[in-house]
Design a protein around this nucleic acid. Structure first.
Lengths: 160, 160
DNA sequence: GCAAAACTGTTTACCTACTTAACAATATAC
DNA sequence: GTATATTGTTAAGTAGGTAAACAGTTTTGC
């Protein structure tokens, strides 16, 4: 063995070794998501919606009278986990739980006009945040990325 | 307005509306990451390493004698959050905290031979899990995805 | 030389975003 | 009409962190 390299290693330890970790899609995906999420929260500020609350509101706006069960299925989470999210949106007067006469188990979720306004405002802010953060990516890069992410999403049988 | 469509909406509500949510990179990234993470855990089973523990071990193997501070910086987390991870790896005899005479603040992390063995085993399992999960993606798709994810990672100034 | 500042590992308390298991109310199946 | 399923909900637990403070130990600035 060559003694020249060995001596350096002991002290410096600043070897530019690219670990196996960097070659894994999962690890890079997590780090990329953390970066996006951090910027999302920064863009929406102190009183802004969290990513999950925004997602829920978005689906309620897109699907008026949706039930909590359907919504949870769409979001890929458990019904029980959705309760706190809907509680928050109701507390902020962004939606209402309204009674459905046909089936009294269900409470149809409907966005209020406040909720619709807040949603469209927030959506614009979120789109601006993504445009800014991903400014280095070309339009076709973004499209490619989107397609690949959707393909990976679909590998999860549960997540509709 | 056309009355034919309106009547249907009230009851069915199963409109195939693609919400704005589906057009956001951040949302799709989260869903894709959740799918990968779920499969990672399933692949490693009950007694297997968690993603974060595996990541830490990987970097300790790649960078012998690394400090906890450097490691935390590499992982993009706080020093305090790393303690529990290193505790677990030490408890499993996968690494040791060894004293550094030059600087008594630091504890050099070194993977044991058990740790190296477990790491290489686990790495093979993780690679198999990604190969299986991402079997629908071509090699060039994976390379493209990797490059895009790394680019997005770098938008986070903190995360080295 | 030496006080001030910085760095390291750690504990503690907290937070977010879930899951699992149970439950009552209600609806559907057979 | 009983058995089964579904809905929303609560309670308890888990995963993966952050922020603030601390003692012990260097490093800086002069």
């Amino acid at each position: 063995m060559a003694p020249r390299a060995a001596a350096k290693q002991i002290k410096t330890d600043t070897t530019r070794v690219v670990s196996d970790l960097e070659t894994l899609i999962g690890y890079n995906m997590k780090r990329a998501y953390v970066a996006i999420q951090k910027d999302f929260r920064a863009a929406l500020g102190e009183g802004g919606l969290s990513p999950r609350t925004f997602s829920a509101l978005s689906l309620v706006v897109a699907h008026p009278n949706i039930s909590q069960s359907s919504l949870a299925r769409m979001l890929g989470i458990e019904r029980s986990g959705l309760v706190a999210i809907i509680d928050e949106l109701e507390r902020r007067n962004f939606l209402t739980r309204s009674v459905v006469p046909d089936d009294r188990r269900i409470q149809a979720l409907v966005a209020t006009s406040d909720g619709q306004l807040a949603y469209h405002d927030t959506l614009a802010t979120v789109q601006a945040h993504e445009d800014r953060l991903l400014a280095d990516l070309s339009a076709s890069d973004k499209e490619t990325l989107m397609q690949l992410l959707k393909k990976i999403r679909l590998t999860d049988k549960e997540g509709l």
